[in-house]
Design a protein around this nucleic acid. Structure first.
Length: 432
RNA sequence: GUGGCCUUAGUGUAGUGGUUAACAUAAGGGACUGUGGAUCCUUUGAGGCGGGUUCGAAUCCCGUAGGCCACCCCA
Protein backbone atom coordinates (compact mmCIF):
# COMPACT_ATOMS: atom_id res chain seq x y z
CA UNK A 1 0.00 0.00 0.00
CA UNK A 2 1.30 3.41 -0.90
CA UNK A 3 1.34 6.22 1.52
CA UNK A 4 -0.20 9.34 0.09
CA UNK A 5 -1.92 12.12 1.95
CA UNK A 6 -2.44 11.44 5.63
CA UNK A 7 -5.88 10.04 6.35
CA UNK A 8 -8.49 12.57 7.40
CA UNK A 9 -9.32 11.16 10.81
CA UNK A 10 -12.76 12.58 11.16
CA UNK A 11 -16.15 10.97 11.05
CA UNK A 12 -18.15 12.12 8.02
CA UNK A 13 -20.15 15.30 8.40
CA UNK A 14 -23.24 14.90 10.52
CA UNK A 15 -22.16 11.60 12.02
CA UNK A 16 -20.55 10.88 15.35
CA UNK A 17 -18.95 8.14 17.37
CA UNK A 18 -20.89 6.99 20.38
CA UNK A 19 -18.84 5.54 23.20
CA UNK A 20 -18.23 5.61 26.90
CA UNK A 21 -20.98 7.35 28.85
CA UNK A 22 -23.03 8.21 25.79
CA UNK A 23 -23.05 4.59 24.71
CA UNK A 24 -24.18 3.44 28.13
CA UNK A 25 -26.89 6.06 28.24
CA UNK A 26 -28.13 5.07 24.82
CA UNK A 27 -28.23 1.43 25.79
CA UNK A 28 -30.19 2.32 28.90
CA UNK A 29 -32.76 4.23 26.81
CA UNK A 30 -33.05 1.29 24.49
CA UNK A 31 -33.43 -1.26 27.27
CA UNK A 32 -36.07 0.90 28.92
CA UNK A 33 -37.92 1.12 25.62
CA UNK A 34 -37.74 -2.62 25.04
CA UNK A 35 -39.05 -3.38 28.50
CA UNK A 36 -41.91 -0.91 28.25
CA UNK A 37 -42.90 -1.56 24.65
CA UNK A 38 -43.06 -5.30 25.33
CA UNK A 39 -45.24 -4.60 28.34
CA UNK A 40 -47.65 -2.98 25.88
CA UNK A 41 -47.62 -6.08 23.70
CA UNK A 42 -45.08 -5.00 21.08
CA UNK A 43 -42.58 -7.30 19.41
CA UNK A 44 -39.20 -6.42 17.96
CA UNK A 45 -38.51 -6.10 14.26
CA UNK A 46 -35.27 -5.25 12.52
CA UNK A 47 -35.36 -4.16 8.92
CA UNK A 48 -32.50 -3.35 6.55
CA UNK A 49 -30.63 -0.07 6.75
CA UNK A 50 -31.27 0.48 3.06
CA UNK A 51 -34.28 -0.21 0.89
CA UNK A 52 -35.35 0.27 -2.69
CA UNK A 53 -35.66 3.99 -3.28
CA UNK A 54 -39.29 3.83 -4.44
CA UNK A 55 -40.33 2.51 -1.04
CA UNK A 56 -39.67 5.94 0.40
CA UNK A 57 -40.64 8.13 -2.53
CA UNK A 58 -44.01 6.40 -2.71
CA UNK A 59 -44.75 6.48 1.00
CA UNK A 60 -43.28 9.73 2.27
CA UNK A 61 -44.43 11.65 -0.76
CA UNK A 62 -42.62 13.07 -3.80
CA UNK A 63 -43.19 16.65 -2.77
CA UNK A 64 -41.87 16.37 0.78
CA UNK A 65 -38.50 17.79 1.76
CA UNK A 66 -37.27 14.38 2.82
CA UNK A 67 -37.71 12.96 -0.64
CA UNK A 68 -36.80 16.15 -2.48
CA UNK A 69 -33.47 16.82 -0.86
CA UNK A 70 -32.67 14.72 2.17
CA UNK A 71 -32.28 11.14 1.02
CA UNK A 72 -29.05 9.22 0.80
CA UNK A 73 -29.70 7.54 -2.50
CA UNK A 74 -27.12 5.53 -4.43
CA UNK A 75 -26.85 2.80 -7.02
CA UNK A 76 -25.39 -0.56 -6.18
CA UNK A 77 -23.18 -2.51 -8.57
CA UNK A 78 -26.10 -3.88 -10.52
CA UNK A 79 -27.68 -0.49 -10.98
CA UNK A 80 -30.52 -0.73 -8.46
CA UNK A 81 -31.44 2.55 -6.82
CA UNK A 82 -31.21 2.13 -3.06
CA UNK A 83 -31.73 4.60 -0.22
CA UNK A 84 -30.52 4.63 3.36
CA UNK A 85 -33.72 4.68 5.34
CA UNK A 86 -34.80 8.18 6.38
CA UNK A 87 -37.52 6.82 8.65
CA UNK A 88 -38.79 3.55 10.03
CA UNK A 89 -42.43 3.20 9.05
CA UNK A 90 -42.16 2.38 5.36
CA UNK A 91 -39.70 -0.50 5.90
CA UNK A 92 -41.88 -2.02 8.61
CA UNK A 93 -44.93 -1.79 6.39
CA UNK A 94 -42.96 -3.37 3.55
CA UNK A 95 -41.93 -6.23 5.83
CA UNK A 96 -45.51 -6.60 7.00
CA UNK A 97 -46.68 -7.09 3.43
CA UNK A 98 -43.72 -9.16 2.26
CA UNK A 99 -44.15 -11.69 5.05
CA UNK A 100 -47.95 -11.69 4.90
CA UNK A 101 -48.19 -10.74 8.55
CA UNK A 102 -51.79 -9.88 7.83
CA UNK A 103 -52.55 -13.51 8.57
CA UNK A 104 -51.48 -12.93 12.19
CA UNK A 105 -53.98 -11.75 14.76
CA UNK A 106 -54.40 -8.04 14.14
CA UNK A 107 -53.33 -5.54 15.10
CA UNK A 108 -49.77 -6.69 14.93
CA UNK A 109 -47.60 -4.54 17.16
CA UNK A 110 -43.97 -4.07 16.22
CA UNK A 111 -41.17 -1.93 17.62
CA UNK A 112 -37.78 -1.05 16.22
CA UNK A 113 -34.67 0.80 17.16
CA UNK A 114 -31.95 1.86 14.79
CA UNK A 115 -30.17 4.51 12.79
CA UNK A 116 -31.92 6.70 10.22
CA UNK A 117 -30.27 8.89 7.61
CA UNK A 118 -31.14 12.27 6.23
CA UNK A 119 -28.90 14.55 4.26
CA UNK A 120 -29.44 17.79 6.12
CA UNK A 121 -27.34 20.64 7.35
CA UNK A 122 -26.23 19.43 10.77
CA UNK A 123 -26.97 21.25 13.98
CA UNK A 124 -27.37 20.19 17.58
CA UNK A 125 -30.21 17.69 17.65
CA UNK A 126 -30.05 17.22 13.93
CA UNK A 127 -27.44 15.02 12.35
CA UNK A 128 -27.26 13.02 9.18
CA UNK A 129 -27.24 9.74 10.99
CA UNK A 130 -29.53 9.65 13.98
CA UNK A 131 -31.19 7.01 16.07
CA UNK A 132 -34.88 6.38 16.40
CA UNK A 133 -36.97 4.06 18.48
CA UNK A 134 -40.48 3.59 17.28
CA UNK A 135 -43.54 1.40 17.18
CA UNK A 136 -46.08 0.47 14.53
CA UNK A 137 -49.47 -1.09 15.26
CA UNK A 138 -50.89 -2.41 12.04
CA UNK A 139 -54.39 -3.64 11.40
CA UNK A 140 -56.79 -1.80 13.66
CA UNK A 141 -58.86 1.34 13.27
CA UNK A 142 -60.00 1.24 16.88
CA UNK A 143 -59.45 4.65 18.52
CA UNK A 144 -58.25 2.69 21.53
CA UNK A 145 -55.05 1.87 19.69
CA UNK A 146 -54.56 5.56 18.86
CA UNK A 147 -54.88 6.45 22.52
CA UNK A 148 -52.64 3.59 23.55
CA UNK A 149 -49.94 4.57 21.08
CA UNK A 150 -49.87 8.18 22.22
CA UNK A 151 -49.96 7.22 25.85
CA UNK A 152 -47.16 4.68 25.37
CA UNK A 153 -44.96 7.37 23.90
CA UNK A 154 -45.65 9.67 26.83
CA UNK A 155 -45.30 6.83 29.32
CA UNK A 156 -41.86 6.08 27.94
CA UNK A 157 -40.63 9.67 28.18
CA UNK A 158 -42.03 10.01 31.68
CA UNK A 159 -40.41 6.72 32.71
CA UNK A 160 -37.07 8.25 31.76
CA UNK A 161 -37.88 11.14 34.06
CA UNK A 162 -38.80 13.87 31.60
CA UNK A 163 -41.29 16.35 32.97
CA UNK A 164 -41.34 19.37 30.67
CA UNK A 165 -43.17 17.90 27.75
CA UNK A 166 -45.77 19.35 25.46
CA UNK A 167 -48.01 16.96 23.59
CA UNK A 168 -49.77 18.29 20.53
CA UNK A 169 -52.69 16.47 19.02
CA UNK A 170 -54.58 16.89 15.79
CA UNK A 171 -56.63 15.00 13.28
CA UNK A 172 -55.60 15.20 9.65
CA UNK A 173 -58.83 13.75 8.30
CA UNK A 174 -59.06 10.86 5.91
CA UNK A 175 -59.01 10.34 2.16
CA UNK A 176 -62.67 11.29 2.21
CA UNK A 177 -62.54 14.64 3.98
CA UNK A 178 -59.00 15.94 3.70
CA UNK A 179 -58.96 16.68 -0.04
CA UNK A 180 -62.00 18.90 0.24
CA UNK A 181 -60.42 20.74 3.15
CA UNK A 182 -57.22 21.26 1.17
CA UNK A 183 -59.30 22.83 -1.61
CA UNK A 184 -61.00 25.19 0.82
CA UNK A 185 -57.63 26.10 2.31
CA UNK A 186 -56.07 26.67 -1.10
CA UNK A 187 -58.95 28.92 -2.10
CA UNK A 188 -58.53 30.94 1.08
CA UNK A 189 -54.78 31.24 0.59
CA UNK A 190 -55.07 32.24 -3.04
CA UNK A 191 -57.45 34.97 -2.00
CA UNK A 192 -54.86 36.36 0.44
CA UNK A 193 -51.83 35.47 -1.63
CA UNK A 194 -50.51 39.03 -1.59
CA UNK A 195 -50.08 38.91 2.17
CA UNK A 196 -48.08 35.69 2.31
CA UNK A 197 -44.32 35.49 2.65
CA UNK A 198 -42.25 34.32 -0.29
CA UNK A 199 -41.89 30.77 0.99
CA UNK A 200 -45.58 30.44 1.64
CA UNK A 201 -46.53 31.69 -1.81
CA UNK A 202 -44.60 28.75 -3.12
CA UNK A 203 -46.34 26.38 -0.73
CA UNK A 204 -49.90 27.28 -1.67
CA UNK A 205 -50.03 24.85 -4.57
CA UNK A 206 -47.25 22.49 -3.54
CA UNK A 207 -48.22 21.62 0.00
CA UNK A 208 -50.65 24.15 1.47
CA UNK A 209 -50.86 22.41 4.84
CA UNK A 210 -47.22 23.31 5.50
CA UNK A 211 -48.09 26.98 5.70
CA UNK A 212 -49.30 26.33 9.21
CA UNK A 213 -45.66 25.79 10.21
CA UNK A 214 -44.57 29.23 9.01
CA UNK A 215 -43.23 31.44 11.76
CA UNK A 216 -43.52 34.75 9.93
CA UNK A 217 -45.86 37.18 11.60
CA UNK A 218 -47.89 38.15 8.58
CA UNK A 219 -48.53 34.54 7.70
CA UNK A 220 -49.44 33.66 11.24
CA UNK A 221 -51.89 36.54 11.33
CA UNK A 222 -53.53 35.31 8.18
CA UNK A 223 -53.71 31.79 9.49
CA UNK A 224 -55.70 32.85 12.52
CA UNK A 225 -58.61 33.39 10.15
CA UNK A 226 -57.84 30.40 7.95
CA UNK A 227 -60.10 27.36 7.77
CA UNK A 228 -59.07 24.56 10.12
CA UNK A 229 -58.97 20.89 9.29
CA UNK A 230 -60.88 20.03 12.42
CA UNK A 231 -63.87 22.01 11.16
CA UNK A 232 -63.96 20.00 7.96
CA UNK A 233 -63.67 16.46 9.31
CA UNK A 234 -66.25 13.96 8.14
CA UNK A 235 -68.55 12.40 10.71
CA UNK A 236 -66.39 9.31 11.00
CA UNK A 237 -63.15 11.23 11.54
CA UNK A 238 -64.84 13.56 13.98
CA UNK A 239 -66.19 10.70 16.08
CA UNK A 240 -62.86 8.90 15.97
CA UNK A 241 -60.98 11.99 17.08
CA UNK A 242 -63.41 12.66 19.93
CA UNK A 243 -63.04 9.10 21.13
CA UNK A 244 -59.23 9.29 21.06
CA UNK A 245 -59.33 12.45 23.14
CA UNK A 246 -61.68 11.03 25.70
CA UNK A 247 -59.63 7.84 26.02
CA UNK A 248 -56.46 9.86 26.51
CA UNK A 249 -58.09 11.92 29.21
CA UNK A 250 -59.32 8.77 30.90
CA UNK A 251 -55.73 7.65 31.45
CA UNK A 252 -54.48 11.06 32.45
CA UNK A 253 -52.54 11.99 29.33
CA UNK A 254 -52.51 15.75 28.91
CA UNK A 255 -52.48 17.18 25.43
CA UNK A 256 -53.09 20.36 23.56
CA UNK A 257 -55.23 20.42 20.47
CA UNK A 258 -53.27 21.93 17.64
CA UNK A 259 -55.30 22.18 14.46
CA UNK A 260 -52.26 23.48 12.61
CA UNK A 261 -50.10 20.46 13.43
CA UNK A 262 -49.04 19.02 10.11
CA UNK A 263 -46.48 16.29 9.96
CA UNK A 264 -43.90 16.01 7.26
CA UNK A 265 -45.09 12.85 5.59
CA UNK A 266 -47.95 12.65 3.14
CA UNK A 267 -49.21 9.35 4.46
CA UNK A 268 -50.71 10.54 7.73
CA UNK A 269 -54.46 10.35 8.25
CA UNK A 270 -56.72 11.02 11.19
CA UNK A 271 -54.71 11.14 14.44
CA UNK A 272 -51.41 13.02 14.29
CA UNK A 273 -49.31 13.95 17.29
CA UNK A 274 -45.98 15.35 18.28
CA UNK A 275 -44.18 15.72 21.59
CA UNK A 276 -41.90 18.70 22.16
CA UNK A 277 -39.45 19.84 24.76
CA UNK A 278 -39.19 23.56 25.50
CA UNK A 279 -35.44 23.24 26.14
CA UNK A 280 -34.27 22.24 22.70
CA UNK A 281 -34.43 25.38 20.56
CA UNK A 282 -35.60 24.92 17.01
CA UNK A 283 -35.13 21.15 17.07
CA UNK A 284 -37.78 20.76 19.73
CA UNK A 285 -39.62 17.68 18.51
CA UNK A 286 -38.65 14.65 20.55
CA UNK A 287 -40.94 12.44 18.60
CA UNK A 288 -44.20 12.14 16.85
CA UNK A 289 -46.39 9.95 14.83
CA UNK A 290 -49.84 9.31 13.63
CA UNK A 291 -52.23 7.11 11.80
CA UNK A 292 -51.55 6.05 8.22
CA UNK A 293 -54.65 4.23 7.12
CA UNK A 294 -53.94 4.53 3.42
CA UNK A 295 -50.31 3.48 3.23
CA UNK A 296 -50.68 -0.28 3.08
CA UNK A 297 -53.14 -0.02 0.25
CA UNK A 298 -50.81 2.42 -1.49
CA UNK A 299 -48.17 -0.33 -1.33
CA UNK A 300 -50.53 -2.73 -3.02
CA UNK A 301 -51.83 -4.47 0.08
CA UNK A 302 -55.41 -4.80 1.28
CA UNK A 303 -56.92 -1.71 2.92
CA UNK A 304 -55.39 -1.88 6.37
CA UNK A 305 -55.39 0.84 9.02
CA UNK A 306 -52.25 1.46 11.07
CA UNK A 307 -50.62 3.86 13.49
CA UNK A 308 -47.18 4.44 14.94
CA UNK A 309 -44.70 6.85 16.43
CA UNK A 310 -40.95 7.42 16.42
CA UNK A 311 -38.73 9.12 18.95
CA UNK A 312 -35.36 10.72 18.28
CA UNK A 313 -32.96 9.14 20.73
CA UNK A 314 -30.36 11.93 20.61
CA UNK A 315 -33.04 14.54 21.22
CA UNK A 316 -34.44 12.59 24.14
CA UNK A 317 -30.93 12.48 25.59
CA UNK A 318 -30.56 16.22 25.07
CA UNK A 319 -33.85 16.86 26.82
CA UNK A 320 -32.81 14.64 29.73
CA UNK A 321 -29.60 16.60 29.97
CA UNK A 322 -31.43 19.94 29.90
CA UNK A 323 -33.74 18.83 32.67
CA UNK A 324 -30.73 17.75 34.73
CA UNK A 325 -31.78 14.13 34.86
CA UNK A 326 -29.00 11.66 35.64
CA UNK A 327 -29.36 8.18 34.30
CA UNK A 328 -27.12 5.15 34.62
CA UNK A 329 -24.45 5.31 31.97
CA UNK A 330 -21.40 3.30 32.85
CA UNK A 331 -21.59 -0.28 33.90
CA UNK A 332 -20.22 -0.81 37.37
CA UNK A 333 -17.29 -3.02 38.20
CA UNK A 334 -17.81 -5.44 41.08
CA UNK A 335 -14.26 -6.47 41.80
CA UNK A 336 -10.87 -5.04 41.04
CA UNK A 337 -8.01 -7.43 41.46
CA UNK A 338 -4.85 -5.81 42.75
CA UNK A 339 -1.77 -7.90 42.14
CA UNK A 340 1.25 -7.34 44.30
CA UNK A 341 4.40 -8.71 42.78
CA UNK A 342 4.79 -10.28 39.38
CA UNK A 343 4.98 -13.83 40.70
CA UNK A 344 1.40 -13.61 42.01
CA UNK A 345 -0.10 -12.66 38.68
CA UNK A 346 -0.76 -16.20 37.37
CA UNK A 347 -2.77 -17.04 40.50
CA UNK A 348 -4.60 -13.75 40.23
CA UNK A 349 -5.44 -14.44 36.63
CA UNK A 350 -6.96 -17.81 37.55
CA UNK A 351 -8.97 -16.26 40.34
CA UNK A 352 -10.27 -13.56 38.02
CA UNK A 353 -11.36 -16.24 35.59
CA UNK A 354 -13.35 -18.02 38.29
CA UNK A 355 -15.06 -14.78 39.33
CA UNK A 356 -16.05 -13.91 35.79
CA UNK A 357 -17.41 -17.37 35.15
CA UNK A 358 -19.63 -16.92 38.18
CA UNK A 359 -21.08 -13.78 36.65
CA UNK A 360 -19.10 -11.25 38.62
CA UNK A 361 -17.81 -8.19 36.78
CA UNK A 362 -14.11 -8.26 37.54
CA UNK A 363 -11.06 -6.55 36.15
CA UNK A 364 -7.41 -6.25 37.04
CA UNK A 365 -4.31 -4.22 36.51
CA UNK A 366 -2.24 -5.03 33.45
CA UNK A 367 1.44 -4.35 33.37
CA UNK A 368 3.29 -3.37 36.49
CA UNK A 369 1.98 -0.67 38.72
CA UNK A 370 2.55 0.12 42.34
CA UNK A 371 -0.15 -1.03 44.71
CA UNK A 372 -0.92 2.59 45.32
CA UNK A 373 -1.51 3.19 41.63
CA UNK A 374 -3.66 0.08 41.43
CA UNK A 375 -5.85 1.33 44.22
CA UNK A 376 -6.25 4.60 42.40
CA UNK A 377 -7.29 2.69 39.32
CA UNK A 378 -9.79 0.62 41.28
CA UNK A 379 -11.27 3.83 42.58
CA UNK A 380 -11.44 5.37 39.14
CA UNK A 381 -13.16 2.29 37.79
CA UNK A 382 -15.77 2.49 40.50
CA UNK A 383 -15.07 -1.01 41.81
CA UNK A 384 -17.18 -2.14 44.74
CA UNK A 385 -14.37 -4.29 46.11
CA UNK A 386 -10.65 -4.59 45.72
CA UNK A 387 -9.18 -8.04 46.07
CA UNK A 388 -5.50 -8.27 46.97
CA UNK A 389 -3.37 -11.09 45.68
CA UNK A 390 0.30 -11.11 46.60
CA UNK A 391 2.96 -13.41 47.92
CA UNK A 392 1.75 -12.92 51.46
CA UNK A 393 -1.78 -14.02 50.52
CA UNK A 394 -0.57 -16.98 48.50
CA UNK A 395 1.62 -18.07 51.40
CA UNK A 396 -1.19 -17.86 53.93
CA UNK A 397 -4.00 -19.03 51.64
CA UNK A 398 -6.08 -15.99 52.62
CA UNK A 399 -6.85 -12.88 50.65
CA UNK A 400 -7.69 -9.43 51.87
CA UNK A 401 -10.80 -7.90 50.39
CA UNK A 402 -11.50 -4.22 50.75
CA UNK A 403 -14.96 -2.70 50.56
CA UNK A 404 -14.20 0.45 48.61
CA UNK A 405 -17.13 2.41 49.96
CA UNK A 406 -16.65 1.80 53.67
CA UNK A 407 -12.94 1.06 53.57
CA UNK A 408 -13.46 -2.06 55.71
CA UNK A 409 -11.26 -5.05 55.01
CA UNK A 410 -11.85 -8.72 55.61
CA UNK A 411 -9.81 -11.84 55.00
CA UNK A 412 -11.28 -14.76 53.10
CA UNK A 413 -9.76 -18.16 52.46
CA UNK A 414 -8.50 -18.46 48.91
CA UNK A 415 -10.87 -21.18 47.72
CA UNK A 416 -13.92 -19.47 49.22
CA UNK A 417 -13.39 -16.14 47.49
CA UNK A 418 -15.64 -16.66 44.46
CA UNK A 419 -18.57 -17.76 46.60
CA UNK A 420 -17.96 -14.93 49.05
CA UNK A 421 -18.24 -12.36 46.27
CA UNK A 422 -21.25 -14.06 44.78
CA UNK A 423 -23.03 -13.75 48.09
CA UNK A 424 -21.96 -10.16 48.82
CA UNK A 425 -22.75 -8.82 45.40
CA UNK A 426 -26.01 -10.69 45.20
CA UNK A 427 -27.29 -9.19 48.43
CA UNK A 428 -25.91 -5.77 47.64
CA UNK A 429 -27.68 -5.65 44.30
CA UNK A 430 -30.86 -6.98 45.87
CA UNK A 431 -30.94 -4.10 48.30
CA UNK A 432 -30.53 -1.37 45.73
C1' G B 1 -29.98 24.56 0.25
C1' U B 2 -29.67 30.24 2.57
C1' G B 3 -27.63 33.61 6.26
C1' G B 4 -24.65 34.38 10.79
C1' C B 5 -21.03 32.94 14.69
C1' C B 6 -17.08 29.69 15.98
C1' U B 7 -12.50 26.15 15.65
C1' U B 8 -5.69 26.40 20.63
C1' A B 9 -3.11 19.60 24.56
C1' G B 10 -8.11 14.07 25.94
C1' U B 11 -11.65 18.01 28.12
C1' G B 12 -12.65 23.27 29.48
C1' U B 13 -10.37 27.87 28.72
C1' A B 14 -6.37 32.15 28.26
C1' G B 15 -3.27 34.58 24.88
C1' U B 16 -5.32 38.91 19.72
C1' G B 17 1.43 40.02 15.11
C1' G B 18 7.58 39.34 18.23
C1' U B 19 12.19 34.77 22.01
C1' U B 20 10.54 27.75 25.41
C1' A B 21 1.90 29.20 23.46
C1' A B 22 -0.33 29.84 29.50
C1' C B 23 -3.85 27.84 33.20
C1' A B 24 -7.20 24.20 35.16
C1' U B 25 -8.50 19.33 34.73
C1' A B 26 -7.71 14.39 32.86
C1' A B 27 -3.73 10.74 31.70
C1' G B 28 1.51 8.39 33.11
C1' G B 29 5.28 8.31 37.14
C1' G B 30 6.75 9.59 42.08
C1' A B 31 6.73 11.61 47.47
C1' C B 32 4.02 6.87 50.38
C1' U B 33 9.57 0.27 47.47
C1' G B 34 1.71 -3.88 50.38
C1' U B 35 -3.59 -0.05 50.46
C1' G B 36 -7.82 4.59 46.75
C1' G B 37 -10.66 9.35 46.87
C1' A B 38 -6.63 14.84 49.88
C1' U B 39 -1.86 17.40 49.14
C1' C B 40 2.80 18.25 46.76
C1' C B 41 6.50 17.18 42.87
C1' U B 42 7.19 15.46 37.92
C1' U B 43 6.32 13.64 32.68
C1' U B 44 3.48 13.41 28.20
C1' G B 45 0.40 16.35 25.24
C1' A B 46 -2.21 21.72 21.38
C1' G B 47 -3.55 26.79 17.45
C1' G B 48 -8.82 21.92 11.82
C1' C B 49 -6.54 21.84 6.95
C1' G B 50 -4.37 24.60 2.52
C1' G B 51 -2.63 29.06 0.65
C1' G B 52 -1.29 34.36 1.17
C1' U B 53 0.54 39.14 3.65
C1' U B 54 4.98 39.96 6.85
C1' C B 55 11.76 40.07 8.73
C1' G B 56 8.23 37.36 11.92
C1' A B 57 1.28 34.68 12.13
C1' A B 58 -2.27 30.91 16.93
C1' U B 59 -3.16 36.28 16.15
C1' C B 60 -4.36 39.73 9.77
C1' C B 61 -6.47 38.12 4.62
C1' C B 62 -8.46 34.27 1.20
C1' G B 63 -10.07 29.40 0.49
C1' U B 64 -11.67 24.80 2.46
C1' A B 65 -13.43 21.31 6.21
C1' G B 66 -16.04 20.63 10.61
C1' G B 67 -19.13 22.39 14.67
C1' C B 68 -22.91 25.66 16.47
C1' C B 69 -27.31 29.24 15.83
C1' A B 70 -31.45 30.86 12.94
C1' C B 71 -34.11 29.56 8.43
C1' C B 72 -35.98 25.29 5.45
C1' C B 73 -37.73 20.93 7.59
C1' C B 74 -37.93 17.23 11.07
C1' A B 75 -36.50 12.93 15.32
Amino acid sequence: MERGEPLELRAPRGTSDIFSRQAGLRRYLEETAVELFERYGYHPITTPIFERTELFTRSIGESTDIVQKEMYTFRDKSGRSLTLRPEGTAPVVRAFLEHKLISQPLPIKLYYSGPMFRYERPQAGRSREFWQVGVEAIGSMDPTIDAETVSLMMHYLETLGLRDLGLLLNSMGCSGCRPSFVEVLKAYLEEHRANLCIDCKRRVQLNPLRIFDCKKEKCQGLLKEAPLITDYLCADCKAHFAEVQSLLMSVGVEFKLEPSLVRGFDYYTKTAFEVRSPHLGAQNALGGGGRYDGLIEEFGGPPTPAIGFALGVERVIMALHCEGIDLPGDSALDVFLAVVGKESKPEGFKLLDRLRKLGIAADMNYGDRSLKAQMKLADRMGALYTLFVGSEELWRGMCKIRDMKSGEQVEVAFEKIPQWFKKQIGSRKGKE
